[in-house]
Each structure stands twice: as structure tokens, then as C-alpha cells.
Simulated assay, not measured.
Amino acid sequence: MSDQADMLRRRLEEHNGKRGKVIAVTSGKGGVGKSNFSINFAVGLAQERYRVLVIDFDIGMGNIHLLIGKSNRYTIADHFEKGVPLTDIIEQGPGGVHYIGGGTGLTQLLSLSDRLFERFSAEFEQILGRYDYILMDMGAGVSDQSLQFMIAANEVFIITTPEPTAITDAYSMMKFLTKQAADIPFYLICNRAPSYKNGEEVLTRLAGAAGKFLNKDVSRLGVIPDDSSVSRAVLRQVPFLELEPKARASTALKQLQQSYLGNENKGTGQELSFMSKVRGYLFNRQ
């Protein structure tokens, strides 16, 4: 990978424009509403006039397009397998959100030829300059293909539910990622909570465990209550934030979003870019 790393270094030196913040949205297990959160959080950001791109990184099981009632012309697999430009793969989603559909092409990322890697890095770097936020909807758990993207993200959102298995797996995810990149910021979200009190207890427990056993300070971003409006929106293939903007889940998500934006605005603004972190990851590979 040394030659590819040199290519990426040159590409980064040539690019001086603004880069969007990259957020990896993940969970320890499936079925916690991660993809639904990703698309609705993106819609919420777009409503605040931010430019948002959602990338479905769930290899082989991408479902972002199903949640919004769209059919993909292309997926990210078409970029690697057929040479389709990344800009042609970007689709128009709800509320002004853009998205890239998932596919199996990511399995090739670790074995790309120099030519394909050069093309991918150049095109992806250009995309980073067009958006304020790029949300990567990762598959549950960790694969070799997804790991480098998660640890290169500026921040990681970890979604859990109050179920004991989801809590345990969320902690395992934090533990694993902390070993790979100790300084990556974590934000915890409890989804489908029967009550705000219950959800806060879950977040407090997870944050406490991270502090005690991982020596990791994590942010408790918020709680989204169990709400039938979410199921109705999934059936209608419409984001619940648009279908029922005054529902409990919608109100909670907007509060969570405002909390995130408020905390973010207090930051130093010195975070490394996504591609800079990818570069560091590649340089340190054995």
C-alpha cells in the first residue's frame, strides 16, 4: 500500500478546499434502527440548511433507499466494478439530502490497484468539499472493509436500544474502536426507549463503563422514545421527521440534533479531515 499512500498524500497536498465533517453511524448489533436514525438525522440537518450526504456502507445489506422509497440507479459497487464516477452515483433523497446506495463493492477496497485507488481517493476528496456533513451508515459490527472508514471518521455515533444484548454489543463496539483509535470522539444514542428515564439510564451506564474500563470520555447525545410514528413512516417509506414532525420521536430527534450542533459549535475546529485520517491509517498499515 506504500505506493497508494504516496498517491493519497499528493492528492491531499493538492486539495486546499473545505472538507465536510464525516460521521460514522454504527451499532454493536443489527435491528436497533441505525439506518432509520441516519436518514432522519440527515433530514434534520438539511432542514437547518446544511449540505448533507448519506453513504450506505452496509456491505451487501444496504437499505437506505428502501427507507425513503427510492430505487438506486447505481451503488458504490458500480464505482469499483464498472468505473462509474462517484458524482454519478449520488442520488437525490428526501428534504434535500443526497445519498449513495450500498453494495458489495467495498469488499474490494483493501485490494485496489494503484489506478483504481488513485481514482477513488481523488473523487472522494472532491465530494468531501461539497458537503457540510457526510454520514456513513455502517453495517452492524466491524469488518476489515469498514474498520478503516470508522476509525478515520471525525466522530462515531453509536446507536443502542435498552435491550441487554444491544447494550453489551454497543460497549464491545466502543472497546474495539478505542483500541484502534483512542482519540476518536463517541456519541451515544439510545433508540426505542420505553421512557426518557430508561433511555438516560442506559446512556449513563454505557458512558460510565467507557470511563471506568476504557478511560474514555463519551458524549450522551440523547434518547429517542419508542414511537408508533416511526413504524408508520417505515411502512410509508418516508422519514418520520417529515411524515409526523410533531411526533415524540421527531421532537426528540430535533432536540438531540440541536444538542449536537450546540456542542459542536464549542469545538476548536481543528479536527483532522476524513481523508487525512485515512492517509494516516494507510501509512501505519503493516
Rank of each mutant, 00 (worst) to 15 (best):
A210D: 06
P94T: 00
R285G: 13
S121K: 00
T87L: 10
V84R: 00
V43P: 02
R236T: 09
R51C: 04
L188K: 05
L235H: 13
S35R: 04
G20C: 09
D183V: 09
N154D: 14
G33H: 01
L221F: 07
K29Q: 08
F117R: 01
Q255Y: 07
S219A: 11
L53N: 03
R279C: 12
Y171N: 11
N265A: 15
V156W: 08
G30T: 09
G30F: 03
E118G: 08
T168K: 07
F57C: 13
G28R: 06
G102N: 00
S228N: 12
A247W: 05
D56F: 01
R279Y: 15
T75S: 14
Q47I: 07
R10P: 00
L128Q: 13
A207M: 09
D3N: 14
I76H: 00
G211Q: 11
D217C: 06
Y99F: 15
D144H: 14
A77V: 00
R279T: 10
I158M: 10
I55A: 12
V156N: 07
P225K: 02
M138P: 08
D58F: 04
L66A: 11
F124E: 00
Y131I: 06
K70Y: 08
H98E: 09
E48M: 13
E201H: 11
A46E: 06
L67D: 03
T26N: 11
I64D: 03
M174Y: 09
P239R: 01
M275V: 08
G33S: 07
Q270K: 15
S250C: 07
F274D: 02
Y187C: 12
E91D: 09
S229I: 02
D226R: 07
